[in-house]
Amino acid sequence: MRARWLAALAVFLAASAMAAPPPPLELADLGGRTHRLADYRGKVVLVNFWATWCGPCREEMPSLERLRQALEGRPFVVLAVNVAEGGRVAGDYMKTLPHGFTVLLDRDGSVTKAWGARILPATYVLGPDGEIRIRHVGAIDWASSEAQQRIAALLP
């Protein structure tokens, strides 16, 4: 639970020039199926760390769904990693929010810690090569034209 949200709109903290390999990510989704980053090699992957107690996380989450819908059919995936709340809390919340993206459970927060996501929401966008191309701390409108353009530019 070592995390905190940043309410103010922030800028992208790192550009694609700062590409770096991500820490490992192997987590179960709400249905119990295990997901690994390697499963998505060749696609752009947006990894969003969030929690139900984090107000800005809840505010930005609908925009993640709008982004997913805007890029539907393209090689793009959203993985929303719930931080240390468990399937019951995360699942109950997601039932209130129409979504087509995958929700993963970092039950003990260890993956979140490995990724350095101390402040929530924290979002990482990986290019098709699996390297981190964008890091962002704080809530933004992921369906905005600026964000869509930045992500679309990474698509193969």
Binding site: M1, R2, R4, L6, W53, R118, I119
Partner: peptide, 12 residues
């Protein structure tokens, strides 16, 4: 939850 380091770092 009182994550004071993050509060000070973010100036929030």
């Amino acid at each position: 939850w009182g994550d004071i380091e993050a509060m000070l770092e973010t100036k929030n």
